[in-house]
Simulated assay, not measured.
Amino acid sequence: MSRPVIAVTMGDPAGVGPEIVARALTERDLRQTCNPVVVGDPRLMFRAMELVRGGLTIRTVQTAAGAGADPETLDVLAAGTLPPDALKPGTLDARWGEAAAACCRTAVELAKAGAVTGIASAPFNKEAFHMAGYKAMDDMTYFEECFAKGEAYQVGEVAGIWTTPVTFHVAFRAIPDLVTKEAVLAKIRSLDKVLKAAKASPARIGVVALNVHCGEGGMFGREEIDVIAPAIQQAKAEGFDVAGPVPPDSAFPLALRGDYKGLVLMYHDQANIGRKIIGRDQPGVSLFLGMPAPVVTVPHGTAYDIAWKGLAKHSMMARAIATAAALAGKGL
C-alpha cells in the first residue's frame, strides 16, 4: 500500500518551525507513515538540519511527485525563501510572516492539485503574519481562505482525547450568544465523524456545560437547559453516543478515566487549558478540518525565545505529521 504524500510547512522561519520539522523527519518510524515534502526555504532547512545534527541530505524538488520516499533525504519544495543572511532568529518581522504565509499557500495549491493528501503545518507567528498585511484572524482562517472551499473547524487531540470547541477565536462576552442548539449539534456530528475516522473506540462524546456547576438548575445561566441539553437529546435521537452536560471542571478527568473519547466544549480555553496541561507530558496536536485536505499543526507557538538554539522539542511536530498521514483521504 502506497504511503500518503504530506506537505510539511516550515512555519515562521525565525521561530522553532524549521528545526522541529528537521528533527521530526529524521525519525525512521515517522518516515514509514508517509512520504513528506517540506514546503519552505531549502537554505534554511539545510541550516536547521545542521543545527539538529539530523544527518539527512537536503534535496530541492520542483514537484511533490516522487518526493519524500527516501528516509535519508529531506525533500524541500521552495517557498517562502529569504535572501541569504536575512534571517534574525527570535525577532518579529513582516518578512517572516510573508514567508510563513507563502508556505501555507504553496501547500494548499499542492493539495488542490491532488499532489498531497494532507498538510502538517509548523507554527507561524500571528503578529508577524498580520505585519505582512494579512487580514485573516489566525492560521485556520488563512488555510480556509486559501482553499476557498469548505467550512473549517478545529479539533484537538491529546492522550487519546479528541476535543472540539463550539466557539473559537472570539471575545469572551460573545460566547453565550454563539452557543446555539444548532452549533452544539453540528460539533457533535463532526466530532463523531473524526472519532470514527481515527478509529477511537468507543466513540463516546461528552458535551461540556458553559456555566459553573452546569448552571445549577438555571441559577447561574440557562444555556444548559435551553441549548445544550436539547442538542444532546437531538444527537441521541440521531443515534450518537453522547452524554452531558458535563461539568467543565470534571470533563478532562472523566475523559482521562475513559468515560469519553471526545469532548465538545463551549469555548477555546475550556478546551485548550486541559489539552496543554496534559500535553506537557504527552504530545498533542491541533487539526483544521472541513476543507479539501486535513491540516494538522502543533498546539504551541513559534517560541522565539529558544528559536535556532537546538532546544525545541519536536514530539508534537512528529505527531502532527503522523496524524495528517493517518487522516489523509478520510473525507474530514
Rank of each mutant, 00 (worst) to 15 (best):
M1S: 14
V8D: 02
T9R: 09
P13W: 13
G15S: 10
E19L: 00
V21S: 08
L30Y: 05
C34Y: 02
N35P: 02
V38K: 01
R47D: 13
M49A: 06
M49R: 01
R53G: 02
T57S: 13
I58F: 06
T60D: 09
G68I: 00
P71C: 00
E72P: 12
T73L: 12
V76Q: 00
G90I: 11
A99L: 11
A100T: 07
C104Q: 10
C104F: 14
E109F: 03
E109D: 09
E109Y: 05
G114N: 15
V116P: 07
V116K: 05
G118W: 04
A120G: 03
F124C: 00
G133R: 13
D139Y: 12
A152Q: 13
I161G: 03
T163R: 05
D177A: 10
T180I: 02
L185A: 13
A186S: 03
I188P: 00
L191Q: 12
L191Y: 14
L191V: 14
L195S: 01
A198N: 03
A198G: 02
L210F: 07
L210W: 09
H213D: 09
G215H: 09
G218I: 14
M219G: 15
E223N: 04
I225E: 12
I225H: 09
I228P: 01
A229W: 11
I232W: 09
Q233G: 10
Q233A: 14
G239S: 10
F240S: 02
A243I: 13
P245H: 07
P247V: 13
P248R: 05
P248T: 10
P248G: 09
P248M: 11
F252G: 06
K261C: 03
H268G: 10
D269V: 11
G274C: 12
K276D: 10
K276P: 10
I277T: 15
D281M: 15
M291H: 05
T302C: 03
A307L: 07
A312Y: 00
I321S: 06
I321C: 07
A325W: 00
L327W: 04
L327R: 01
A328Y: 07
A328C: 07
G331S: 09
L332I: 01
